[in-house]
Nucleic acid binder design. Structure first.
Length: 568
RNA sequence: UGGGAGAUCGUUCAACGGUAGGACAGCAGACUCUGACUCUGCUUAUCGGGGUUCGAAUCCCUGUCUCCCAGCCA
């Protein structure tokens, strides 16, 4: 705390929030302390948008030798559940952050917040209002007209105290009265037109149970919680800019530690939706299998899909923090994902759409054990042996009877390399009645064992394969973006139709063949299926039937070439 | 219509009165036992109009556009 590490100017791209922290440190504000917090409401699962906030808050604390608290903003019991609390704890940990013993709940402070409300009443700055929700709305005025003062605004301190005590005691029905702060009904900022501080609400709270029948509103709780915890920089999203005057009003009138609220832009990503409400809808309507469906942008969904915490952190550190309302392209996320997966994923050969290849001159019954590296750039990941035999499978797309221009893979008369194995040349094909190729016949060059020919001749393509006798069956789940439209605005317009969903956003490939070495791999194990994509073992996987999620496909420049050829 | 906040390559973030730069995407090439990875090169931007200044993305004025706000949600 006394000697915060000096920020490495070069290493990290700065942002305006970080600049504020640096300035405060330089000026000696807060006694050189940096203390942030991540304050989710436990009413849903965390998503990639929260990751941005988590990385910012925990990241700033870490960078400047400060602290970051995890705090649950649980002031509305009607929406909150322990299931969400548990998932949030798991997700923040998984992302790689630690709050030591500083996990708090707004509900920890209910008594203190209540006492502060009493203080404000005593100072004549808060009053009990008997107006209905409807009437309060009518009194609030409009953008152009000032609001009207509540007829209960000038109750005596004694009466307010008595009423507020009885509110707490449960003497009045839900919604019958509120405690409001006495600020300014003519303020151009609606938040200042005598905002409600407490509402009567008989809902079972996931932590405090039924001990309270009145709960503080966000505005009256948040700054106070920050203050209690000694937060220095209270970082939140842009929609709270209008709330800052109220945030400041409460801590000033209570005369308590005054954290600085700083607002930044929330993350928007193309082709997905980052709104708890909409994600909840997807779960409730059964459009996805749950919060951890691999198509969901939730941290649990992404984790199951095979995203790594490091990739998400790197992404968050690179998208920047500003106050502009933008939308980040999904390809940016995929870039950082691939970058990390490329380093970590062991290579293995898997044929998603198999077609049989028979090596006519390969001895019947012979099995060659060929050595393959687990990672081309990381020898420490070791090697494995891959069984090779007379009958193998290759990818249907790796053979063309009539190859288009620039197609380098197998076709009649052409020689290619089977990765880690041999050069093979296609000699003939067998077709069914429909004229579809069902079997490819090849000859192999025994001298090319291991993948290189002693005479130095080259092939233009290397393809992956799996021995028919040794390969094991597996399922591969291929995912598309859940949302076909790039932006949420377009989604909004079509929401009732659900037409914005990508049809068949999950394709379950059942006939795939994979190398035997993956048998029994634990859920979450990452692989690169060579030339196909990054996959991870799904939680539903069994040794008998491995199940893989495609995390993200490999970049595919041939697909681009081919696409460009189509219109001709 | 009142208040608040924004506007820089296709996207995103920098540049804090002194050469508009990075990342992603795109394009072209090199390399390659993954058409992957890696490497090289290239294309493209200061919302409009006025000012101030030797000099403006940056300061001033003005216009335009976008986002947020009228929950007893957070």
């Amino acid at each position: 705390m006394s000697t915060p590490p000096s920020p490495e100017k070069e290493a990290k791209p700065s942002n305006f929030v970080r600049d504020i922290v640096i300035q405060d440190l330089a000026s000696g504000k807060n006694g050189g302390r940096v203390h942030t917090r991540f304050p989710p409401e436990p009413n849903g699962y965390l998503h990639i948008g929260h990751a941005k906030s988590i990385c910012l808050n925990f990241g700033l604390a870490k960078e400047f030798g400060g602290k970051c608290n995890l705090r649950f903003d649980d002031t509305n019991p009607s929406k909150e559940e322990t299931e969400y609390v548990d998932s949030i704890i798991e997700d923040v940990r998984w992302l790689g952050f630690d709050w030591d013993d500083r996990m708090f709940y707004a509900s920890d402070y209910f008594e203190q917040i209540y006492q502060w409300a009493v203080d404000l009443i005593k100072k004549g700055k808060a009053y009990v209002c008997d107006l209905t929700a409807e009437q309060i709305r009518e009194h609030r005025g409009t953008t152009t007209e000032p609001g009207k003062e509540s007829p209960y605004r000038n109750r005596s301190v004694e009466e307010n105290l008595d009423l507020f005590t009885r509110m707490r005691a449960g003497e009045f029905p839900d919604g019958s009265r509120t405690l409001r702060s006495k600020i300014d009904m003519a303020s151009p900022n609606f938040n200042m037109r005598d905002p409600v501080m407490y509402r009567i609400l008989r809902a079972h709270h996931h932590r405090t149970g039924d001990t309270w029948c009145l709960y503080p509103m966000y505005d009256f709780a948040h700054g106070e919680c920050d203050s209690i915890e000694g937060i220095t920089h209270s970082i939140c999203t842009l929609e709270f800019e209008d709330h800052r005057p109220l945030y400041d009003w409460y801590v000033e009138n209570l005369d308590i530690h005054h954290p600085q609220q700083i607002e930044f832009d929330r993350l928007n990503l193309t082709n997905t939706v980052l709104s708890k409400r909409k994600l909840l809808l997807l779960v409730q309507k059964g459009i996805v299998s749950g919060w951890d469906d691999p198509r969901m942008p939730t941290l649990s969904g992404m984790r199951r899909r095979g995203y790594t915490a490091e990739a998400i952190r790197t992404f968050c550190g690179n998208i920047g923090v500003s106050k502009t309302n933008g939308i980040v392209e999904f390809s940016m996320l995929e870039h950082f994902l691939r970058e990390d997966l490329n380093k970590k994923a062991a290579r293995v050969m898997t044929v998603l759409d198999p077609i049989k290849v028979i090596i006519d001159n390969f001895p019947d019954g012979q099995v060659d054990q060929l050595e393959a590296v687990n990672h081309p750039d990381d020898p420490s990941m070791g090697t494995r042996t891959v069984p090779f035999s007379k009958v193998i499978y290759i990818e249907r797309d790796d053979f063309r009877e009539d190859p288009p221009k620039q197609y380098f893979r197998l076709s009649p008369g052409r020689e290619v390399r089977l990765r880690y194995a041999y050069f093979v040349t296609c000699t003939s094909v067998v077709k069914n009645e429909a004229g579809e190729v069902t079997e490819i016949h090849c000859t192999y060059d025994p001298a090319s064992r291991g993948g290189n020919s002693p005479d130095g001749r080259k092939v233009k393509s290397t393809i992956h394969w799996v021995s028919a006798e040794h390969g094991i069956d597996c399922e591969a789940r291929l995912y598309e973006n859940l949302f076909r439209e790039a932006s949420e605005d377009e989604v909004e317009a079509q929401e009732t139709e659900w037409a914005w969903l990508t049809p068949n956003s999950m394709i379950n490939v059942t006939g795939a063949k994979v190398e035997p070495c993956v048998k029994g791999a634990a859920a979450g194990t990452l692989y690169q299926f060579e030339r196909v994509g990054y996959f991870c073992v799904d939680k539903t996987s069994t040794p008998e039937m491995p199940v893989f999620n495609r995390t993200v496909a490999l970049r595919d420049s041939w697909a681009k070439i081919e696409k460009g050829q189509k219109p001709k």
